[in-house]
Simulated scan of single mutants.
Amino acid sequence: MHLIKTLFLLLLLASGASRAQGIAPYEARLGRARPVVAVVGVNSGTELSDFLAPYAILARAGSMDVLALGTSAGPIQMRPALRVAPHATLAAFDAQYPDGADYIVVPAVAAPDDPVLLPWLAVQAAKGATIVSICDGALVVARAGIFKQHRATGHWATHRQRVADYPDTAWLANRRYVADGKVVSSAGISAAIPTALALVEAVAGRARADEVAAEIGASGWSDQHNSARFGRTPGMLLTALGNKLLHGQARIAIALHDGMDELEMALQADAFSRTLRSKAYGVADSMAPVMTRHGLQIYPDLDRSAAAGTVPVAGGNLKQIISQIRTMYGAGTAHLVAAQLEYDELAEANF
Rank of each mutant, 00 (worst) to 15 (best):
R232H: 09
A331I: 03
A280Q: 02
G332A: 15
I252C: 04
N226W: 07
A187Y: 05
A170E: 07
G295R: 06
R176E: 00
G45T: 01
L52N: 04
R232C: 03
D94C: 04
V105K: 00
A191G: 03
R83W: 10
L341P: 04
V106K: 10
V84W: 03
A142H: 12
I76H: 05
E47C: 00
D168T: 04
Q149E: 14
V311Y: 10
L13A: 13
P115E: 10
L58T: 14
P115T: 11
L7D: 05
N317F: 03
L336K: 04
A307S: 15
L82V: 08
R83H: 14
A33I: 02
K319Y: 09
R34E: 11
G154Q: 11
D210W: 06
G332S: 08
G137Y: 08
L3F: 14
G217L: 05
S185N: 00
R143K: 14
D113Y: 05
Q268G: 04
V84M: 14
F272K: 06
Q124G: 07
S63E: 12
A101V: 11
S278K: 00
S18M: 15
L82W: 01
V42I: 15
Q124R: 10
P312C: 07
E201C: 07
A59I: 06
S186M: 08
Y166A: 10
V123T: 08
L12S: 00
Q249M: 12
Q324E: 07
L197G: 06
L199W: 10
D270N: 13
F51V: 11
V116P: 00
P289C: 12
L238H: 00
M265K: 01
W156L: 09
F272M: 09
L9V: 14
T327W: 08
A339C: 02
A38Y: 02
Y343D: 05
R208A: 05
L237I: 06
P80R: 00
R304V: 11
K127L: 15
D99K: 09
D50P: 08
Y55F: 15
W120V: 12
E345S: 03
D180A: 04
R162C: 14
Q320C: 00
F93W: 01
Y166V: 10
A38L: 09
S278D: 03
H155K: 09
L52Y: 07
P54Y: 11
V141K: 03
Y281H: 11
I23Q: 13
A347E: 13
V105A: 00
Q124P: 07
R160H: 13
R293A: 13
M291A: 08
A306G: 00
P107G: 11
W171A: 08
Q268H: 01
G70F: 10
M260F: 07
M64W: 07
Q77T: 15
V116K: 10
A349V: 15
L197S: 09
L10K: 13
S49F: 10
L241P: 01
G309I: 11
S186P: 13
P112M: 12
H2L: 12
D114T: 08
E345H: 06
W221I: 13
I298N: 00
V37I: 15
A349K: 11
F147A: 14
L341C: 03
A144Y: 13
A213R: 01
S133F: 06
A218Q: 01
V109K: 12
A24T: 14
V39E: 08
A85Y: 06
L82D: 03
K5N: 14
I131F: 02
G309Q: 01
G332Q: 10
E264Y: 01
H294D: 15
G74D: 00
P54H: 12
G205W: 05
L336A: 09
Y177A: 01
H335W: 11
A81K: 08
